[in-house]
């Protein structure tokens, strides 16, 4: 275990996510690196479930960690998948005794020099969004204190990840709302401008725009924008 001071630095870093240059991929990598360092594990990996419940690899402390995660996902078996499914941690699993439970994963992991595995759920209330996995090259047992620390790290990381998802969602929604509003307005403006410039009714102007969109296979809003651009250009020339 690392010192309390180092540990508190890790927690501060893991919660400092509301900054402008926050990069989620960096965050995944740092989380796994810290989890390995805090626990003394040789490798750590992180998997997250997407909105369809499919488990995906997102980051690891090193290449071994990545390999061990992909191994589980490709073979649909392993401690991290169990952990995501049940929401329960897998602690101190000795791979030599896990051949029944995860035959392919255990064999391949042992071949790669690993002996022990632990999986901690990334959980917020009832929702499990993923699992943080630790792999050891020697059969090492986690003491209850160590389990608590790693689970706490997984918990703060969960909040950071959900927060980032929320922000991404909100940014997308803002863009979509702005885009939808602008489209509607552009179409109304073009109806008015075309009606005036050709001396026709607003309804007839709308028909003209729609016909033009259909015959040129363009979206109505694109045609409307082009009409406005042309007329606005005439004004400034």
């Amino acid at each position: 275990m690392i010192s309390p001071v180092q540990l508190s630095d890790v927690f501060v870093e893991m919660t400092d996510t509301l900054v402008g240059d926050f990069d989620i991929l960096d965050f995944y990598h740092n989380l796994t690196k810290h989890a390995a360092a805090v626990s003394g594990a040789s490798a750590a990996g992180l998997v997250l479930a997407d909105h369809r419940g499919r488990v995906r690899y997102v980051g690891a402390s090193n290449e071994s960690g990545k390999m061990l995660e992909l191994l589980q996902i490709q073979n649909s078996e392993g401690p991290c998948l169990d952990c995501v499914t049940t929401g329960e941690p897998v602690i101190n699993a000795d791979l030599s005794y896990a051949m029944d439970r995860w035959p392919t994963f255990s064999r391949r992991a042992i071949e790669a020099g690993f002996q022990s595995v632990h999986a901690f759920p990334m959980r917020l209330r009832d929702e499990t969004i993923g699992a943080l996995n630790l792999f050891g090259t020697v059969t090492s047992r986690f003491e209850p204190d160590e389990v608590r620390v790693v689970q706490a790290l997984a918990d703060v990381a969960t909040i950071a990840i959900l927060q980032e998802r929320n922000v991404t969602h909100a940014e997308a929604l803002t863009e979509q709302l702005q885009g939808a509003l602008n489209s509607r307005i552009v179409i109304e403006q073009a109806k008015g401008a075309l009606a005036r410039s050709r001396g026709i009714s607003v309804g007839a102007a709308f028909d003209t725009l729609r016909l033009e969109a259909r015959s040129s296979s363009r979206r109505l809003v694109e045609v409307a924008q082009a009409v406005l651009d042309d007329l606005e250009k005439d004004n400034t020339e």
Binding site: A172, E175, R184, I185, E188, Q189, G192, S197, L228, L231
Partner: peptide, 29 residues
């Protein structure tokens, strides 16, 4: 999701005063 259009359910919530923008287009001309 980034890059997708607005959810249809939200379109109805985007009520605009169409005539103001039509008149804006006319005034431009």
């Amino acid at each position: 999701e980034p890059g997708l259009g607005l959810d249809p359910a939200h379109h109805e919530a985007m009520a605009i005063h169409g005539q103001i923008y039509q008149a804006q287009g006319m005034t431009m001309v």
